[in-house]
Design a protein around this nucleic acid. Structure first.
Length: 196
DNA sequence: AATTTAGGCAACCGCCTGATG
DNA sequence: GCATCAGGCGGTTGCCTAAAT
């Protein structure tokens, strides 16, 4: 049974101070972040590696875009979420400067509510128009896809084939977004709807 | 002005995966 | 094949602040 890194004695938890931020930034700028576990010790921070990594990726990274999400970004999140579900990191990969955590928070605090509202007004949920439509057309059940396993699908299901051959009922819009997803996904080890 | 409530977001937790020995 | 480690991910929590009462 390994000890979770955060349980080590003497490690600080909770909000980061400006001083800690500065230490982390200068250390990474100087030496990079080859080994997160060793970094806090090397930098002189009383934090666990995970905490440092999270702080850097979600807040301190220089290329982070802060502020409100644009309409285009919102649309992208909504569409990708319909296609791939709660794969926040995959969605974030398509929104330069945005982090998975930020997108996840934005989803839970804004978009989810909006969708639920729309769903109530329309008497169904938004997803039913796209991915669920595809599911219905191809006999697929489940609530997500892509991953080391395809949610609710046999592991050998070729989703690309399913979508393309499934039926003309599948919306062109979904196909458009699906194509964007599979053709632009680089570095995520995903190819044609499946992780390799 | 004081208190309560709700929303937003940073951070933690636990699990999973891939790499390594 | 098994154990361990580090990194990564998604779910969840809890704090802070603004709005409402």
């Amino acid at each position: 049974m390994r000890t979770p890194c955060c349980e080590r004695m003497g490690l600080k938890k909770g909000p980061w101070t400006a001083e800690e931020d500065q230490i982390l930034i200068s250390h990474i700028q100087r030496y990079g972040h080859g080994n997160w576990r060793a970094l806090p010790k090397q930098a002189g921070l009383l934090r666990c590696g995970k905490s440092c990594r999270l702080r850097w990726i979600n807040y301190l990274r220089p290329d982070i875009k802060r502020g409100k999400f644009s309409k285009e970004e919102e649309d992208t999140i909504l569409k990708l979420h319909e296609i791939i579900g709660n794969r926040w990191s995959a969605i974030a990969a398509r929104l330069p400067g945005r982090t998975d955590n930020e997108i996840k928070n934005f989803w839970h605090t804004h978009l989810k509510k909006r969708i639920e509202k729309c769903g109530v007004q329309n008497g169904n949920n938004v997803s039913s128009h796209t991915f669920h439509e595809a599911q219905g057309a191809s006999g697929i059940t489940g609530n997500g896809m892509f991953g080391n396993y395809v949610y609710g699908l046999p592991s050998n299901t070729n989703l690309g084939e399913t979508i393309h051959n499934g039926s003309s009922q599948i919306s062109e819009e979904m196909e458009f977004w699906y194509n964007i997803f599979i053709t632009t996904d680089q570095g995520n080890n995903i190819h044609e709807g499946k992780e390799i």
